[in-house]
Write a protein that binds this DNA or RNA. Structure first.
Lengths: 256, 256
DNA sequence: TCGACTTTGTGCAAGCGTTCACAAGCGGTA
DNA sequence: TACCGCTTGTGAACGCTTGCACAAAGTCGA
C-alpha cells in the first residue's frame, strides 16, 4: 500500500492543451493513474506474459480478471486508464496489451538495480532470476565487509559501500535495494540518495527518511506475518465467540 | 464506522451489560479495524519496541506519528480502533500501548511458520533472525528435492514435501510461506491448505486460488520493482514535458 | 444489409479510508 | 478550587476506489 510518501503534489491535469502532442497525452494519462491501479497493471502484465507463452492471442476482460484475481469491471477500468485498446465483442489482443502496459510502467527502458547488503537476503536477491528476465538487471552489489568485496555473487562482483557513488553512476543504477540490518539502513539510504538513486526498495524494518523526490517502497516480512497473525486471532476469537454464545455463523469454517 | 465507541476506559470494563465478557468487546472491536490500519499498527509496534529499549516511557501521538512516518491524526484514529489508552495532555504510555497492540495483533500466541521451497529465498527466510525474535518461530522446512531433506538449514531439518500434512499437524504450524518456483506454487498451496494451514505468505509470482477461509498475502518483488519503474518513467516524462513546454514545475527536482 | 449477440468503456452511486478541526479531559499551578 | 495549556479522541467532510449497470461498438451468420 501507499508506504511512506509525501504525495503532496496535487498536480491538476490540464484538459485543454493535449492537442497535437502524443507524448504529452501519455504523460497526462500516466499521471492520472491511481496508485492502486499501477500495482494491478503489473499483475495483469505477468498474467498476460504467461498467456503469450501459451500462444493465446486474444483475451476477454472476464478471463483476464479471473486469472488475475480481480473483478472484471475493475480490470476494464484499470485498462481504460492507459487507453482504449480492446475490441468490443471480442476482447483484448494480448500482445498489444502487453506492449501498452510495458510502456506505461516504463519497462521499455532498462532499470539497473543495486543491492546493498550481501547477507542471506542479499544473496537471494543477487541470485534471483526473476529480476533480469523482467528488465531489472542487477548491476551492482555492495557490502560494508571488506572480506566480501571482490568475490562475485551470482556472477556480479561485490563492491565496497564506500564506492557506491562512483559505481552507481558508472553503471547507471536507477533502483537501489536495501537488504542490510536495520541499524545500517538509514545510512545506506542516504548514500544511495546522494549517489543519485531516486527509487528505493527497502527490506529493512525501518522507516526511512528521504527527500520528497525519492520514491521508497518497503517490504517488511515481520509486518506481513503480523497481519496474518491478526487474522488468525480474529478468526479464533470469532470461533470462541460462537462457541460461547452457542450461535453458529454461516460461512465460518474452522477446519474443512 | 461509528460502530460502538470504545468508551470502556482502559481497566474498567463497561458496568452495564455483559459485565463478565471482555473478550466479546475485543472481538467486536478487532473485527472493525480496517485492513490498512492493521498494517500500520504493526509498524507502530516496531517503533514502540525501539522506544522501550531506549527507555522512553511516554510518547505523544505527534512524536510516534513522526517516527512511524504517518499523519498524527491517522495515528490517533488507528489507536482509537483498539481502545482509548492515552492520557489527554500527556500522551501514551509506551508499554501499555505495546501490550495492547500485541494483544490485538494476536502476538500473545506463538505462530509457528513453515517455509516451503528451500532455494535462495527459502535459505534466506530460514536463516532470517527477524522471525523468531518477533514471535514467529520457523518450525518446519520443506522441499521436493530428496537430496535436501534431512540436511538442516539454519538449525531446522528439511522435510520432504510429501510429509507436509503430518509435520504441520505435529508442529502446530499456523502460517505457511511459499518460496517455490511459480510452477509449483499452486500445488504447494493446495497441500498447505489441506494440511490445515489457514494463513499463507506467498513469494511466488502467481495468483493463488484458495478457499474463502484461507488468508493469503503476497510479496511480489517484480511487482514492487515495476511500481518503482512506473514512477521513474512518470518523473522522466514530466521532466521531458517541462522542457518541451518550457514550464518549470515547483518541487520537481531531477538531480539534487 | 440486417439483426442477434458479445464485450468494451464509463457514468454514477455506494463504501472506505484519510484528514480536518475541535470539544473533552487531564496534569500542573497558584 | 479554579484556571491554563496541552493532547487525546472523534464527528464530519472530503476524496479515492470499487462495483453496478448499461449504452456504444464491434463480430458473426443469414
Amino acid at each position: 500500500m501507499a508506504a511512506q510518501r509525501g504525495e503532496g503534489d496535487g498536480v491538476v491535469t490540464r484538459p485543454g492543451e493535449t492537442g497535437a502532442e502524443a507524448p504529452a497525452d501519455v504523460r497526462e494519462r500516466a499521471r492520472a493513474i491511481p496508485e492502486a491501479a499501477v500495482a494491478r497493471l503489473a499483475v495483469y502484465l505477468r498474467v498476460l506474459s504467461g498467456m503469450v507463452e501459451q500462444g493465446v492471442t486474444t483475451i476477454s476482460s472476464e478471463e483476464l480478471a479471473g486469472a488475475a484475481g480481480v473483478n472484471s469491471a475493475k480490470l476494464r477500468k484499470d485498462l481504460s486508464y492507459i487507453g482504449s485498446y480492446g475490441t468490443r465483442g471480442v476482447g483484448y489482443d494480448v500482445e498489444v496489451l502487453v506492449s501498452h502496459i510495458e510502456r506505461i510502467l516504463g519497462l521499455t527502458r532498462k532499470h539497473s538495480v543495486a543491492v546493498v547488503g550481501i547477507g542471506n537476503l542479499g544473496h537471494a536477491l543477487a541470485n534471483y532470476g526473476g529480476f533480469p528476465s523482467r528488465g531489472f538487471p542487477v548491476a551492482a552489489l555492495f557490502d560494508i565487509d571488506p572480506d566480501l568485496t571482490g568475490v562475485p555473487v551470482g556472477g556480479i562482483p561485490v563492491d565496497h559501500i564506500d564506492d557506491i557513488t562512483s559505481v552507481c553512476a558508472e553503471r547507471e543504477v536507477s533502483i537501489g535495494v536495501i537488504a542490510t540490518p536495520p541499524q545500517a539502513a538509514q545510512a545506506v539510504c542516504d548514500r544511495l540518495v546522494s549517489a543519485g538513486v531516486q527509487c528505493i526498495l527497502n527490506f529493512a524494518p525501518v522507516v526511512l527518511q528521504v527527500p520528497d523526490y525519492v520514491e521508497v517502497r518497503k517490504v517488511d516480512l515481520a509486518v506481513e506475518m503480523q497481519i496474518l497473525s491478526f487474522h488468525v486471532a480474529r478468526r479464533a476469537d470469532e470461533a470462541a465467540g460462537d462457541v460461547v454464545n452457542g450461535i453458529g455463523v454461516d460461512g465460518v469454517v474452522i477446519r474443512p
